[in-house]
């Protein structure tokens, strides 16, 4: 028997799993709040309680929302991303940006007890960033090493995100991702990769894994 969480109520309604608890939390956060055991236990208890039902399918709504993050008190991103000289090549701009992030990545990693999501790829972050920069400079797509590309961009994104959230505290997700997409060289490079993949006759589905669907929408100045 199964019970579980649904993040999109409409999908649970149509697919009718035997028991499902719909939560209003953001995608990527099915238990609601990181490092809040009490909140997470509340969600689990509500989902396990569905096992007691005598007939189904059962779809219940969890009554609590995840608490909103107050943007005014959210920690300031410790990294600033100055406008770069567009006359330099991508490889130089990306490696220079990476250097400025490294100390903050290490601070964040230490705060998380040594935990990091980076290093999906067998290559170091330095090698991945240089290689991504070279592809951008050459105006080529990594069509012969798509699995590497998937791992490399994932590594790069989580490396940046972990550095940008090095300080303890609740972060506003929108603020962090807006900064990543619109203020960094990596973000600009990813938009370029996305554009090039989207225009490719057969590899266009790969464009979907590079940036979120709404990344181009600037919601912050």
């Amino acid at each position: 028997m199964t019970t579980g969480i649904s993040l999109v109520r409409e999908n649970a309604e149509s697919m009718q799993p035997p028991r499902s608890l719909w939560v209003s939390f953001p995608l990527g956060r099915p238990l609601g709040v990181p490092n809040d055991a009490s909140f997470q236990h509340g969600v689990i208890a509500a989902s396990l309680a569905l096992l007691e039902h005598r007939r189904g399918p059962v779809l219940e709504d969890y009554p609590l929302d995840a608490p909103d993050v107050c943007v005014k008190t959210t920690p300031v991103c410790p990294v600033s991303f100055p406008k770069s000289d567009d006359n330099t090549d991508w490889e130089s701009r990306l490696t220079s940006e990476l250097s400025s992030l490294k100390p903050w990545y290490e601070i964040g990693k230490k705060r998380r007890g040594g935990r990091s999501l980076a290093r999906l790829s067998n290559l170091s972050i330095d090698k991945n960033i240089r290689k991504l920069g070279k592809y951008l400079d050459l105006n080529h797509l990594p069509i012969d090493e798509l699995q590497w590309f998937k791992q490399a961009i994932e590594d790069a994104k989580v490396f940046y995100l972990e550095a940008m959230t090095a300080e303890p505290g609740d972060y506003d997700q929108n603020q962090i991702y807006q900064k990543l997409w619109h203020e960094t060289q990596l973000g600009a490079g990813l938009f370029l990769f996305q554009e090039r993949f989207a225009a490719h006759p057969t590899l266009h589905p790969f464009a979907r894994i590079i940036l979120p669907r709404n990344a181009a929408v600037k919601t912050m100045n």
Partner: peptide, 18 residues
């Protein structure tokens, strides 16, 4: 190593249990 770019990773980096 999820392929979708459409959800947050920061929370999972903070806490696996999320």
């Amino acid at each position: 190593s999820h392929s979708s770019a459409n959800f947050d990773r920061v929370g999972f980096a903070e806490d696996v249990n999320l």
